[in-house]
Design a binder for these strands. Structure first.
Lengths: 250, 250
DNA sequence: ATGAACGTTGCATATTGTGCAACGCCCTCG
DNA sequence: CGAGGGCGTTGCACAATATGCAACGTTCAT
């Protein structure tokens, strides 16, 4: 909507990939060097970008500070964190917390597995929305019309043979998740990794976040992981209670 | 330098203070509502800002994703290298850079001593984790429980009479290193070789790497080497600053 | 019902960002 | 040592672009 700002902001993801010099930035933006220079200067003044010793540009400290504040303002995370830690303490596996925002599902917190074989995931990165347990939980709470609208727009990549194949299957699964109040991902994203998840609800009953426990086959079988379901659900409920203003229960 | 971008970016710190509606943003920017709207829309399209359910604007999780990605693509070695070279230029001794990975501490960069008598080490090779200065620095940053767990699992080979003898001594030393912010290895690995090291920290204050200067007794005594400590620490701090996105200080 | 508060849109204006060309600097190669 | 290329930087003329205005649509409280 604003060309100048649009161009300036496009520089950020570009620099997130790694440092770049003026020419590279100008090329990838499709603008003249002098234009890129002015944009970079403005970003620089705001501390979002800085120049490292070899003169190349990089994302700056201010961005990290802002990012920090951005997550701190997500207070679900703050409340949930100790519960996630406690859960990890009990079962030892990787625990994730995710929210839906702007057409995406994002991990906003993670407690690493204590086992040497770990699952790869990145806090802040969008999750595989068509297969992840947390994504299904978050989407299942939308009104039906919206669920359909979203499903229609999605791609359904076949990560594995068990990935959700298409919109119809996805909607069916969302309905089931909505019904039962929990979700799984059994090898839908990576063949050897399973997850069990449960929703976190606000005072009005709407799903505000979702959490899951993930573990690779080599550590526990899907069946064993499913045995953790009651524990996961209880944790999610405890977080929900605290989040919606009730005193933490013992 | 670019008014439009300047205004748009000024919105971010403003929103970091807390959610705000269109009118508030326009007021604080000193521009018309319609202008503020367009700026916010552009920020919105890039996911830096999003609209919560009550229509107010807040910082978006994409900011977090961006910062995360930037950190992942950051190469400590690349940033550190020129600083290591400069340090070697000044003192002439061997300079090492190391990281912790998968239960091991690995040298990932090295600048050779200018003296004929050199210390033997290889980039990519695990270091003697119980005695090396860089290892102590990296491990000292772990939470106490984890430090203990790691220490219990280690062997404590008696390379020399000054090698760390057991887990208890090791933990005690880690605590001290953590406290003082630097570490040494005085003949703990090879009788005649001493090292001084300092930690390199990321934007969040966590230790991401460690560096050290090593020299054999025949070139400088331990005392003389220790006199380099302030220089080593300053170098490590300069790298930390640059790594965490601050402008290099003059 | 009525009005206020807020977000949104189209439009005319000139402010603002743009590309160009030229300059200076550093480094490399002949 | 001097020519040449690469790169960042500056000043300028032009028009593309952002801006404020005024009017409209909604929602909410009175």
């Amino acid at each position: 909507m604003s060309q100048t700002v649009d161009r300036a902001l496009s520089i950020l993801p570009l620099l997130a990939e790694g440092p770049a010099d003026l020419g590279q930035v100008a090329d990838r933006l499709g603008v003249h060097k002098s234009t890129a220079l002015r944009l970079l200067r403005t970003l620089h003044e705001h501390g979002l970008v800085f120049r490292q010793s070899d003169q190349r540009y990089r994302l700056g400290a201010r961005l990290f500070a802002l990012a920090q504040e951005a997550v701190e303002n997500l207070d679900v995370r703050e409340i949930a964190h100790p519960h996630l830690l406690a859960l990890n303490e009990k079962c030892g596996h990787t625990v994730h917390l995710a929210v839906y925002e702007e057409q995406e599902v994002l991990y906003i917190d993670k407690v690493e597995s204590r086992y040497p074989v770990r699952m790869y995931s990145r806090i802040g990165k969008p999750v595989a929305i068509t297969v992840a347990a947390v994504a299904k939980l978050l989407l299942s709470d939308f009104p039906e019309a919206e669920r359909r609208a979203i499903a229609e727009k999605l791609d359904f990549p076949a990560y594995t043979s068990r990935s959700t194949p298409n919109a119809a299957a996805f909607l069916k699964e969302l309905a089931q998740v909505r019904e039962q109040g929990w979700a799984t991902d059994l090898g839908g994203h990576e063949e050897s990794i399973n997850c069990v998840g449960a929703p976190i609800r606000g005072a009005d009953g709407r799903v505000v976040a979702a959490m899951s426990v993930s573990a690779p086959n080599v550590v526990v079988t899907a069946e064993e992981l499913l045995r953790l379901l009651p524990l996961v659900r209880r944790t999610a409920e405890a977080i929900s209670r605290e989040y919606s203003g009730h005193a933490p229960e013992k």
